[in-house]
Nucleic acid binder design. Structure first.
Lengths: 259, 259
DNA sequence: ATCTATTGTTACTTTAGGGGTAACAAATGT
DNA sequence: ACATTTGTTACCCCTAAAGTAACAATAGAT
Protein backbone atom coordinates (compact mmCIF):
# COMPACT_ATOMS: atom_id res chain seq x y z
CA UNK A 1 0.00 0.00 0.00
CA UNK A 2 1.29 3.44 0.86
CA UNK A 3 4.97 3.10 1.50
CA UNK A 4 5.87 1.41 4.76
CA UNK A 5 9.45 2.39 4.08
CA UNK A 6 11.22 4.32 6.77
CA UNK A 7 11.86 7.67 5.05
CA UNK A 8 14.72 8.40 7.41
CA UNK A 9 16.41 5.20 6.30
CA UNK A 10 15.93 6.07 2.65
CA UNK A 11 17.39 9.47 3.33
CA UNK A 12 20.39 7.98 5.08
CA UNK A 13 21.05 5.60 2.22
CA UNK A 14 20.85 8.49 -0.21
CA UNK A 15 23.48 10.30 1.80
CA UNK A 16 25.59 7.17 1.52
CA UNK A 17 25.50 7.54 -2.24
CA UNK A 18 22.49 5.58 -3.46
CA UNK A 19 19.79 7.21 -5.57
CA UNK A 20 16.32 7.37 -4.11
CA UNK A 21 15.13 4.41 -6.16
CA UNK A 22 18.23 2.39 -5.35
CA UNK A 23 17.72 3.06 -1.66
CA UNK A 24 14.07 2.07 -1.79
CA UNK A 25 14.81 -1.06 -3.80
CA UNK A 26 17.60 -2.17 -1.49
CA UNK A 27 15.42 -1.65 1.56
CA UNK A 28 12.71 -3.54 -0.25
CA UNK A 29 14.90 -6.54 -0.92
CA UNK A 30 16.27 -6.52 2.61
CA UNK A 31 12.72 -6.44 3.96
CA UNK A 32 11.50 -9.20 1.70
CA UNK A 33 14.67 -11.26 2.11
CA UNK A 34 14.33 -13.22 -1.11
CA UNK A 35 12.04 -11.82 -3.66
CA UNK A 36 11.12 -10.83 -7.19
CA UNK A 37 11.26 -7.50 -8.94
CA UNK A 38 7.49 -7.26 -8.84
CA UNK A 39 7.32 -7.67 -5.07
CA UNK A 40 9.96 -5.04 -4.57
CA UNK A 41 8.04 -2.72 -6.87
CA UNK A 42 4.82 -3.29 -4.96
CA UNK A 43 6.42 -2.71 -1.59
CA UNK A 44 8.45 0.32 -2.54
CA UNK A 45 6.40 2.02 -5.28
CA UNK A 46 9.45 2.30 -7.46
CA UNK A 47 7.91 2.17 -10.96
CA UNK A 48 7.97 -1.34 -12.31
CA UNK A 49 9.56 -0.10 -15.50
CA UNK A 50 12.47 1.16 -13.43
CA UNK A 51 12.89 -1.58 -10.88
CA UNK A 52 14.73 -4.02 -13.15
CA UNK A 53 17.48 -1.59 -14.05
CA UNK A 54 17.77 -0.43 -10.45
CA UNK A 55 18.09 -3.99 -9.13
CA UNK A 56 20.68 -4.75 -11.80
CA UNK A 57 22.73 -1.76 -10.74
CA UNK A 58 22.54 -2.82 -7.10
CA UNK A 59 23.72 -6.30 -8.07
CA UNK A 60 26.58 -4.79 -10.06
CA UNK A 61 27.58 -2.82 -6.99
CA UNK A 62 27.53 -6.05 -5.02
CA UNK A 63 24.63 -5.17 -2.76
CA UNK A 64 22.34 -7.86 -4.15
CA UNK A 65 22.66 -11.40 -5.40
CA UNK A 66 20.63 -12.67 -8.32
CA UNK A 67 18.98 -15.93 -9.19
CA UNK A 68 18.25 -15.93 -12.87
CA UNK A 69 14.96 -17.22 -14.14
CA UNK A 70 11.52 -15.96 -14.91
CA UNK A 71 10.88 -14.29 -12.69
CA UNK A 72 14.38 -13.44 -11.56
CA UNK A 73 14.86 -13.59 -7.81
CA UNK A 74 16.90 -11.22 -5.72
CA UNK A 75 18.48 -11.55 -2.34
CA UNK A 76 20.15 -8.82 -0.28
CA UNK A 77 23.75 -9.13 0.80
CA UNK A 78 24.02 -8.67 4.58
CA UNK A 79 23.57 -4.95 5.32
CA UNK A 80 26.55 -5.09 7.65
CA UNK A 81 28.76 -6.04 4.72
CA UNK A 82 27.18 -3.53 2.38
CA UNK A 83 27.30 -0.57 4.72
CA UNK A 84 30.78 -1.61 5.77
CA UNK A 85 31.94 -1.54 2.19
CA UNK A 86 30.41 1.85 1.50
CA UNK A 87 31.96 3.20 4.66
CA UNK A 88 35.41 1.86 3.82
CA UNK A 89 35.32 3.35 0.36
CA UNK A 90 34.20 6.68 1.74
CA UNK A 91 36.92 6.74 4.33
CA UNK A 92 39.58 5.91 1.77
CA UNK A 93 38.26 8.74 -0.29
CA UNK A 94 38.41 11.09 2.68
CA UNK A 95 41.97 10.09 3.52
CA UNK A 96 43.07 10.57 -0.05
CA UNK A 97 41.39 13.97 -0.26
CA UNK A 98 43.04 15.07 2.96
CA UNK A 99 46.47 14.03 1.73
CA UNK A 100 45.94 15.90 -1.49
CA UNK A 101 44.72 19.00 0.31
CA UNK A 102 47.72 18.96 2.59
CA UNK A 103 50.01 18.96 -0.41
CA UNK A 104 48.53 22.27 -1.48
CA UNK A 105 49.70 24.03 1.64
CA UNK A 106 53.05 25.24 0.41
CA UNK A 107 52.87 28.64 2.12
CA UNK A 108 52.82 29.23 5.81
CA UNK A 109 49.47 30.40 7.02
CA UNK A 110 49.14 34.14 6.63
CA UNK A 111 47.26 34.99 9.75
CA UNK A 112 44.91 37.79 8.94
CA UNK A 113 43.70 39.94 11.80
CA UNK A 114 39.98 39.44 11.57
CA UNK A 115 37.68 36.71 10.40
CA UNK A 116 34.03 35.97 10.49
CA UNK A 117 32.68 32.47 11.01
CA UNK A 118 29.18 31.63 9.95
CA UNK A 119 28.56 28.05 10.94
CA UNK A 120 27.90 26.66 14.38
CA UNK A 121 30.41 23.92 13.85
CA UNK A 122 33.01 26.39 12.61
CA UNK A 123 32.51 28.55 15.68
CA UNK A 124 33.00 25.70 18.15
CA UNK A 125 35.93 24.48 16.14
CA UNK A 126 37.64 27.85 16.30
CA UNK A 127 36.93 28.32 19.99
CA UNK A 128 38.54 24.99 20.69
CA UNK A 129 41.52 25.94 18.55
CA UNK A 130 42.02 29.18 20.45
CA UNK A 131 41.60 27.45 23.81
CA UNK A 132 44.29 24.98 22.88
CA UNK A 133 46.69 27.84 22.21
CA UNK A 134 46.30 29.82 25.40
CA UNK A 135 49.57 30.24 27.27
CA UNK A 136 48.99 32.54 30.24
CA UNK A 137 45.72 34.35 30.47
CA UNK A 138 42.16 33.92 29.32
CA UNK A 139 39.25 36.26 29.85
CA UNK A 140 35.83 34.85 29.13
CA UNK A 141 32.49 36.59 28.97
CA UNK A 142 29.29 34.64 28.56
CA UNK A 143 25.66 35.70 28.59
CA UNK A 144 24.38 32.19 29.18
CA UNK A 145 25.91 29.04 30.60
CA UNK A 146 25.31 26.67 27.66
CA UNK A 147 28.39 27.54 25.70
CA UNK A 148 30.58 27.34 28.80
CA UNK A 149 29.21 23.89 29.55
CA UNK A 150 30.22 22.87 26.06
CA UNK A 151 33.83 23.75 26.82
CA UNK A 152 33.84 22.96 30.51
CA UNK A 153 36.41 20.22 30.17
CA UNK A 154 38.80 22.31 28.07
CA UNK A 155 38.48 25.24 30.48
CA UNK A 156 38.99 23.05 33.51
CA UNK A 157 42.22 21.82 32.01
CA UNK A 158 43.39 25.35 31.25
CA UNK A 159 42.71 26.43 34.82
CA UNK A 160 45.82 24.59 35.96
CA UNK A 161 48.23 26.48 33.72
CA UNK A 162 46.60 29.87 33.10
CA UNK A 163 44.91 32.77 34.80
CA UNK A 164 41.23 32.42 33.95
CA UNK A 165 38.70 35.19 34.42
CA UNK A 166 35.01 34.51 33.90
CA UNK A 167 32.69 37.44 33.45
CA UNK A 168 28.96 37.00 33.37
CA UNK A 169 25.95 39.24 33.76
CA UNK A 170 23.92 37.13 36.16
CA UNK A 171 25.84 35.10 38.67
CA UNK A 172 22.79 32.98 39.51
CA UNK A 173 22.51 31.40 36.11
CA UNK A 174 26.07 30.09 36.27
CA UNK A 175 26.20 28.65 39.74
CA UNK A 176 26.13 25.07 38.46
CA UNK A 177 29.46 25.56 36.71
CA UNK A 178 32.62 24.86 38.69
CA UNK A 179 34.31 28.20 38.10
CA UNK A 180 34.66 31.47 39.95
CA UNK A 181 32.55 34.10 38.19
CA UNK A 182 32.60 37.87 38.28
CA UNK A 183 29.57 39.94 37.51
CA UNK A 184 29.31 42.91 35.15
CA UNK A 185 27.46 46.06 36.04
CA UNK A 186 23.77 46.17 35.24
CA UNK A 187 24.33 49.00 32.78
CA UNK A 188 26.82 46.96 30.83
CA UNK A 189 24.70 43.87 30.50
CA UNK A 190 21.70 45.97 29.46
CA UNK A 191 23.90 47.61 26.90
CA UNK A 192 25.22 44.30 25.57
CA UNK A 193 21.76 42.89 25.12
CA UNK A 194 20.55 45.87 23.25
CA UNK A 195 22.92 46.85 20.51
CA UNK A 196 21.11 47.84 17.34
CA UNK A 197 23.09 48.64 14.20
CA UNK A 198 21.34 49.46 10.97
CA UNK A 199 18.11 48.16 12.40
CA UNK A 200 19.72 44.81 13.23
CA UNK A 201 19.60 43.64 16.81
CA UNK A 202 22.99 42.42 17.99
CA UNK A 203 23.17 40.15 20.97
CA UNK A 204 26.64 39.42 22.24
CA UNK A 205 26.54 35.93 23.68
CA UNK A 206 30.13 34.98 24.26
CA UNK A 207 33.50 36.60 24.21
CA UNK A 208 36.99 35.39 24.90
CA UNK A 209 40.39 37.09 24.95
CA UNK A 210 43.42 34.83 24.86
CA UNK A 211 46.75 36.13 26.11
CA UNK A 212 45.67 39.66 25.28
CA UNK A 213 46.25 39.17 21.59
CA UNK A 214 43.53 37.03 20.12
CA UNK A 215 39.82 37.34 20.69
CA UNK A 216 36.68 35.64 19.50
CA UNK A 217 33.18 36.96 20.00
CA UNK A 218 29.97 35.12 19.27
CA UNK A 219 26.83 37.13 18.69
CA UNK A 220 23.53 36.85 16.96
CA UNK A 221 22.63 39.55 14.50
CA UNK A 222 19.02 39.41 13.49
CA UNK A 223 18.30 35.69 13.43
CA UNK A 224 21.80 34.66 12.40
CA UNK A 225 24.54 33.60 14.73
CA UNK A 226 28.12 34.27 13.82
CA UNK A 227 31.52 34.70 15.38
CA UNK A 228 34.25 37.24 14.82
CA UNK A 229 37.87 36.41 15.40
CA UNK A 230 40.23 39.31 15.97
CA UNK A 231 43.95 38.90 16.32
CA UNK A 232 45.04 42.54 16.55
CA UNK A 233 46.77 42.99 19.88
CA UNK A 234 45.68 46.61 20.07
CA UNK A 235 42.05 45.78 19.68
CA UNK A 236 42.29 42.95 22.09
CA UNK A 237 43.96 45.20 24.59
CA UNK A 238 41.10 47.68 24.30
CA UNK A 239 38.56 44.92 24.61
CA UNK A 240 40.31 43.66 27.66
CA UNK A 241 40.23 47.13 29.16
CA UNK A 242 36.53 47.38 28.58
CA UNK A 243 35.86 44.09 30.26
CA UNK A 244 37.98 45.12 33.21
CA UNK A 245 36.01 48.34 33.51
CA UNK A 246 32.61 46.79 33.52
CA UNK A 247 33.16 44.43 36.35
CA UNK A 248 31.30 45.16 39.55
CA UNK A 249 33.75 47.37 41.48
CA UNK A 250 33.83 45.00 44.42
CA UNK A 251 35.27 42.27 42.24
CA UNK A 252 37.95 44.25 40.49
CA UNK A 253 41.33 42.97 41.40
CA UNK A 254 44.23 45.30 42.08
CA UNK A 255 46.51 43.95 39.36
CA UNK A 256 43.86 44.40 36.73
CA UNK A 257 43.54 48.10 37.56
CA UNK A 258 47.23 48.61 37.19
CA UNK A 259 47.31 47.48 33.59
CA UNK B 1 45.56 29.63 -16.73
CA UNK B 2 44.15 26.23 -17.55
CA UNK B 3 43.20 24.61 -14.32
CA UNK B 4 46.10 23.53 -12.14
CA UNK B 5 43.58 21.83 -9.94
CA UNK B 6 44.13 18.17 -9.24
CA UNK B 7 41.10 16.58 -10.88
CA UNK B 8 41.39 13.54 -8.67
CA UNK B 9 41.11 15.77 -5.64
CA UNK B 10 38.05 17.50 -7.06
CA UNK B 11 36.53 14.13 -7.74
CA UNK B 12 37.23 12.94 -4.22
CA UNK B 13 35.64 16.03 -2.72
CA UNK B 14 32.60 15.52 -4.91
CA UNK B 15 32.29 12.01 -3.55
CA UNK B 16 32.45 13.53 -0.08
CA UNK B 17 29.34 15.52 -0.93
CA UNK B 18 30.52 18.83 -2.39
CA UNK B 19 29.36 20.01 -5.79
CA UNK B 20 31.98 20.44 -8.48
CA UNK B 21 32.10 24.20 -8.01
CA UNK B 22 32.22 23.89 -4.24
CA UNK B 23 35.09 21.45 -4.50
CA UNK B 24 37.02 23.68 -6.88
CA UNK B 25 36.40 26.76 -4.77
CA UNK B 26 37.45 25.06 -1.56
CA UNK B 27 40.61 23.74 -3.16
CA UNK B 28 41.19 27.25 -4.53
CA UNK B 29 40.94 28.87 -1.12
CA UNK B 30 43.12 26.21 0.48
CA UNK B 31 45.73 26.77 -2.24
CA UNK B 32 45.63 30.55 -1.95
CA UNK B 33 45.42 30.47 1.84
CA UNK B 34 43.84 33.89 2.26
CA UNK B 35 42.25 35.32 -0.77
CA UNK B 36 39.45 37.07 -2.60
CA UNK B 37 36.58 35.73 -4.66
CA UNK B 38 38.25 36.99 -7.82
CA UNK B 39 41.48 35.12 -7.18
CA UNK B 40 39.59 31.93 -6.50
CA UNK B 41 37.65 32.44 -9.70
CA UNK B 42 40.83 32.96 -11.70
CA UNK B 43 42.54 29.92 -10.25
CA UNK B 44 39.62 27.57 -10.51
CA UNK B 45 37.64 28.81 -13.51
CA UNK B 46 34.45 28.70 -11.53
CA UNK B 47 32.41 31.46 -13.21
CA UNK B 48 32.82 34.72 -11.36
CA UNK B 49 29.06 35.13 -11.21
CA UNK B 50 28.87 31.87 -9.31
CA UNK B 51 31.86 32.08 -7.03
CA UNK B 52 30.26 34.42 -4.48
CA UNK B 53 27.32 32.16 -3.80
CA UNK B 54 29.55 29.10 -3.71
CA UNK B 55 31.93 30.68 -1.22
CA UNK B 56 28.99 31.76 0.92
CA UNK B 57 27.68 28.21 0.99
CA UNK B 58 31.09 26.88 1.98
CA UNK B 59 31.25 29.43 4.79
CA UNK B 60 27.77 28.39 5.95
CA UNK B 61 28.94 24.81 6.06
CA UNK B 62 31.86 25.92 8.17
CA UNK B 63 34.59 25.12 5.66
CA UNK B 64 35.62 28.75 5.16
CA UNK B 65 35.97 31.84 7.28
CA UNK B 66 35.10 35.26 5.95
CA UNK B 67 36.53 38.72 6.41
CA UNK B 68 33.94 41.21 5.28
CA UNK B 69 34.94 44.19 3.19
CA UNK B 70 35.33 45.10 -0.42
CA UNK B 71 36.68 42.85 -1.60
CA UNK B 72 35.65 40.24 0.91
CA UNK B 73 38.45 37.89 1.92
CA UNK B 74 38.21 34.19 2.50
CA UNK B 75 40.32 31.77 4.44
CA UNK B 76 40.06 27.99 4.53
CA UNK B 77 39.46 26.13 7.75
CA UNK B 78 42.14 23.46 8.26
CA UNK B 79 41.39 20.60 5.85
CA UNK B 80 41.97 18.13 8.65
CA UNK B 81 39.05 19.63 10.56
CA UNK B 82 36.85 19.89 7.50
CA UNK B 83 37.44 16.38 6.22
CA UNK B 84 37.17 15.08 9.76
CA UNK B 85 33.78 16.69 10.16
CA UNK B 86 32.50 15.32 6.86
CA UNK B 87 33.77 11.88 7.77
CA UNK B 88 32.14 11.91 11.20
CA UNK B 89 28.81 12.92 9.77
CA UNK B 90 29.04 10.22 7.14
CA UNK B 91 29.89 7.55 9.64
CA UNK B 92 27.02 8.51 11.90
CA UNK B 93 24.79 8.26 8.90
CA UNK B 94 26.18 4.82 8.06
CA UNK B 95 25.69 3.56 11.61
CA UNK B 96 22.14 4.84 11.71
CA UNK B 97 21.35 3.26 8.34
CA UNK B 98 22.77 -0.07 9.46
CA UNK B 99 20.69 -0.05 12.64
CA UNK B 100 17.59 0.73 10.64
CA UNK B 101 18.33 -1.99 8.11
CA UNK B 102 18.84 -4.54 10.84
CA UNK B 103 15.42 -3.76 12.25
CA UNK B 104 13.89 -4.87 8.97
CA UNK B 105 15.16 -8.40 9.30
CA UNK B 106 12.22 -9.95 11.05
CA UNK B 107 12.30 -13.22 9.15
CA UNK B 108 15.01 -15.82 9.26
CA UNK B 109 17.00 -15.95 6.08
CA UNK B 110 15.29 -18.19 3.57
CA UNK B 111 18.28 -19.89 2.03
CA UNK B 112 17.56 -20.31 -1.61
CA UNK B 113 19.53 -22.97 -3.46
CA UNK B 114 21.24 -20.88 -6.11
CA UNK B 115 22.43 -17.34 -6.44
CA UNK B 116 24.43 -15.36 -8.88
CA UNK B 117 26.84 -12.64 -7.80
CA UNK B 118 27.91 -9.99 -10.22
CA UNK B 119 30.42 -7.81 -8.44
CA UNK B 120 34.02 -8.57 -7.60
CA UNK B 121 33.54 -7.39 -4.08
CA UNK B 122 30.41 -9.48 -3.68
CA UNK B 123 32.22 -12.58 -4.89
CA UNK B 124 35.10 -12.23 -2.44
CA UNK B 125 32.66 -11.44 0.30
CA UNK B 126 30.68 -14.59 -0.32
CA UNK B 127 33.76 -16.79 -0.62
CA UNK B 128 34.90 -15.55 2.74
CA UNK B 129 31.47 -16.22 4.21
CA UNK B 130 31.49 -19.78 2.95
CA UNK B 131 35.04 -20.38 4.14
CA UNK B 132 34.06 -19.24 7.61
CA UNK B 133 31.30 -21.84 7.70
CA UNK B 134 33.25 -24.94 6.67
CA UNK B 135 33.10 -27.68 9.27
CA UNK B 136 34.82 -30.77 7.87
CA UNK B 137 35.76 -30.80 4.25
CA UNK B 138 36.62 -28.32 1.53
CA UNK B 139 37.43 -29.03 -2.08
CA UNK B 140 38.95 -26.21 -4.03
CA UNK B 141 39.62 -25.93 -7.74
CA UNK B 142 41.52 -22.99 -9.16
CA UNK B 143 42.77 -22.22 -12.64
CA UNK B 144 45.20 -19.58 -11.46
CA UNK B 145 46.90 -18.87 -8.16
CA UNK B 146 45.77 -15.25 -7.64
CA UNK B 147 42.47 -16.00 -6.02
CA UNK B 148 44.03 -18.59 -3.73
CA UNK B 149 46.61 -16.06 -2.65
CA UNK B 150 43.78 -13.73 -1.74
CA UNK B 151 42.41 -16.30 0.69
CA UNK B 152 45.67 -17.92 1.72
CA UNK B 153 45.32 -16.88 5.34
CA UNK B 154 41.73 -18.11 5.64
CA UNK B 155 42.64 -21.41 3.99
CA UNK B 156 45.71 -21.90 6.16
CA UNK B 157 43.53 -21.51 9.21
CA UNK B 158 41.00 -24.01 7.91
CA UNK B 159 43.73 -26.55 7.25
CA UNK B 160 43.96 -27.27 10.98
CA UNK B 161 40.34 -28.29 11.41
CA UNK B 162 39.23 -29.59 8.02
CA UNK B 163 40.20 -31.88 5.20
CA UNK B 164 41.33 -29.60 2.38
CA UNK B 165 41.74 -30.73 -1.20
CA UNK B 166 43.26 -28.42 -3.77
CA UNK B 167 42.79 -29.22 -7.41
CA UNK B 168 44.59 -27.27 -10.13
CA UNK B 169 45.36 -27.80 -13.77
CA UNK B 170 49.05 -26.89 -13.76
CA UNK B 171 50.97 -27.76 -10.63
CA UNK B 172 53.86 -25.51 -11.65
CA UNK B 173 51.90 -22.30 -11.43
CA UNK B 174 50.94 -22.98 -7.81
CA UNK B 175 54.23 -24.06 -6.33
CA UNK B 176 54.65 -20.80 -4.45
CA UNK B 177 51.56 -21.50 -2.39
CA UNK B 178 51.98 -23.52 0.82
CA UNK B 179 49.43 -26.19 0.06
CA UNK B 180 49.45 -29.69 -1.33
CA UNK B 181 47.95 -29.61 -4.83
CA UNK B 182 46.50 -32.31 -7.05
CA UNK B 183 46.43 -32.00 -10.78
CA UNK B 184 43.51 -32.57 -13.13
CA UNK B 185 43.82 -34.48 -16.35
CA UNK B 186 44.80 -32.51 -19.41
CA UNK B 187 41.47 -33.25 -21.05
CA UNK B 188 39.59 -31.78 -18.17
CA UNK B 189 41.50 -28.55 -18.01
CA UNK B 190 41.19 -28.12 -21.76
CA UNK B 191 37.50 -28.70 -21.40
CA UNK B 192 37.16 -26.22 -18.57
CA UNK B 193 38.89 -23.49 -20.52
CA UNK B 194 36.74 -23.99 -23.53
CA UNK B 195 33.11 -24.09 -22.64
CA UNK B 196 31.00 -22.18 -25.12
CA UNK B 197 27.31 -21.74 -24.51
CA UNK B 198 25.16 -19.66 -26.85
CA UNK B 199 28.30 -18.23 -28.40
CA UNK B 200 29.56 -17.09 -25.01
CA UNK B 201 32.94 -18.32 -23.89
CA UNK B 202 32.86 -19.59 -20.32
CA UNK B 203 36.06 -19.81 -18.38
CA UNK B 204 35.78 -21.52 -15.03
CA UNK B 205 38.36 -19.89 -12.82
CA UNK B 206 37.58 -21.05 -9.34
CA UNK B 207 35.38 -23.57 -7.64
CA UNK B 208 34.84 -24.60 -4.09
CA UNK B 209 32.67 -27.24 -2.40
CA UNK B 210 32.13 -26.89 1.33
CA UNK B 211 31.13 -29.93 3.36
CA UNK B 212 29.55 -31.44 0.26
CA UNK B 213 26.51 -29.20 0.48
CA UNK B 214 27.42 -25.70 -0.61
CA UNK B 215 29.42 -24.68 -3.63
CA UNK B 216 30.56 -21.50 -5.27
CA UNK B 217 32.03 -21.25 -8.73
CA UNK B 218 33.61 -18.19 -10.28
CA UNK B 219 33.76 -17.93 -14.04
CA UNK B 220 33.99 -15.34 -16.73
CA UNK B 221 31.37 -15.41 -19.42
CA UNK B 222 32.24 -13.19 -22.33
CA UNK B 223 33.98 -10.27 -20.68
CA UNK B 224 31.99 -10.43 -17.46
CA UNK B 225 33.03 -12.21 -14.33
CA UNK B 226 30.43 -13.65 -12.04
CA UNK B 227 29.97 -16.27 -9.38
CA UNK B 228 27.29 -18.86 -8.83
CA UNK B 229 26.46 -20.14 -5.39
CA UNK B 230 24.70 -23.48 -5.19
CA UNK B 231 23.47 -24.99 -1.97
CA UNK B 232 21.71 -28.10 -3.29
CA UNK B 233 23.41 -31.09 -1.69
CA UNK B 234 22.65 -33.24 -4.73
CA UNK B 235 24.31 -30.91 -7.13
CA UNK B 236 27.26 -30.44 -4.86
CA UNK B 237 27.60 -34.17 -4.53
CA UNK B 238 27.68 -34.53 -8.30
CA UNK B 239 30.18 -31.72 -8.61
CA UNK B 240 32.33 -33.36 -6.03
CA UNK B 241 32.18 -36.61 -7.95
CA UNK B 242 33.29 -34.87 -11.09
CA UNK B 243 36.21 -33.27 -9.40
CA UNK B 244 37.21 -36.59 -7.91
CA UNK B 245 37.08 -38.19 -11.35
CA UNK B 246 39.22 -35.69 -13.12
CA UNK B 247 42.18 -35.93 -10.83
CA UNK B 248 45.27 -37.47 -12.32
CA UNK B 249 44.89 -41.20 -11.46
CA UNK B 250 48.18 -41.27 -9.59
CA UNK B 251 46.82 -38.73 -7.12
CA UNK B 252 43.46 -40.28 -6.46
CA UNK B 253 43.25 -41.43 -2.93
CA UNK B 254 41.59 -44.65 -1.95
CA UNK B 255 38.94 -43.14 0.30
CA UNK B 256 37.85 -40.81 -2.47
CA UNK B 257 37.18 -43.73 -4.79
CA UNK B 258 35.05 -45.41 -2.26
CA UNK B 259 32.55 -42.58 -2.03
C1' DA C 1 33.92 65.38 -8.75
C1' DT C 2 33.98 62.42 -12.47
C1' DC C 3 35.35 58.57 -14.69
C1' DT C 4 36.88 53.79 -14.64
C1' DA C 5 37.65 49.35 -12.94
C1' DT C 6 36.43 46.11 -9.77
C1' DT C 7 33.11 43.89 -6.72
C1' DG C 8 28.96 41.81 -6.08
C1' DT C 9 24.13 40.59 -7.74
C1' DT C 10 20.36 39.10 -10.70
C1' DA C 11 18.10 36.81 -14.21
C1' DC C 12 18.39 33.82 -17.74
C1' DT C 13 19.94 29.42 -20.54
C1' DT C 14 21.75 24.88 -20.80
C1' DT C 15 22.74 20.35 -19.45
C1' DA C 16 22.56 15.87 -17.22
C1' DG C 17 20.74 12.66 -13.95
C1' DG C 18 17.07 10.79 -11.92
C1' DG C 19 12.26 9.88 -11.66
C1' DG C 20 7.69 8.81 -13.85
C1' DT C 21 4.57 6.91 -17.69
C1' DA C 22 3.01 4.31 -21.54
C1' DA C 23 3.37 0.99 -24.62
C1' DC C 24 5.44 -3.09 -26.45
C1' DA C 25 7.97 -7.70 -26.71
C1' DA C 26 8.99 -12.05 -24.56
C1' DA C 27 8.08 -15.63 -21.65
C1' DT C 28 4.72 -18.47 -18.66
C1' DG C 29 0.67 -20.62 -17.46
C1' DT C 30 -3.98 -21.98 -18.34
C1' DA D 1 -4.82 -19.77 -28.23
C1' DC D 2 -5.23 -16.73 -24.98
C1' DA D 3 -4.37 -14.05 -20.90
C1' DT D 4 -1.09 -12.81 -17.47
C1' DT D 5 3.14 -11.76 -15.94
C1' DT D 6 7.95 -10.54 -16.87
C1' DG D 7 11.13 -7.68 -18.81
C1' DT D 8 12.43 -3.77 -22.10
C1' DT D 9 12.18 0.51 -24.64
C1' DA D 10 11.16 5.06 -25.61
C1' DC D 11 9.53 8.75 -24.15
C1' DC D 12 8.56 13.08 -20.90
C1' DC D 13 9.34 15.93 -16.82
C1' DC D 14 11.64 18.04 -13.14
C1' DT D 15 15.49 19.69 -10.59
C1' DA D 16 20.20 20.72 -9.30
C1' DA D 17 23.99 22.64 -10.82
C1' DA D 18 26.83 24.72 -14.29
C1' DG D 19 27.40 28.48 -17.54
C1' DT D 20 26.31 33.34 -19.53
C1' DA D 21 25.26 38.08 -19.86
C1' DA D 22 24.09 42.21 -18.21
C1' DC D 23 23.55 45.46 -14.42
C1' DA D 24 24.16 47.86 -9.77
C1' DA D 25 27.16 49.24 -6.16
C1' DT D 26 31.53 50.23 -4.55
C1' DA D 27 36.39 51.73 -4.55
C1' DG D 28 40.28 53.84 -6.69
C1' DA D 29 42.33 57.13 -9.95
C1' DT D 30 42.61 61.40 -12.56
Amino acid sequence: MFSQLNPQLIHNLERLGLTENEAKAYVGVVSLRETTAREVHELTNVPRAKIYEVLKVLAKKGYLEIRQGSPTYFRAVDPKQVIGKIKDEFINCAIEALDQLNELSYELPKTSPVWCIQSEWGIKNRIREILSGVKEELIVFASSPEILQEFEADLKKLEKTCRLTFIVNELDRFKLLPFEFRETTKEFSDFMNNIVIDGLQYDEQFFMIADGKESIGVHSAGNKREAVVIKLPVVCYLQKMIYNRVLEPSFIKKDLNSV
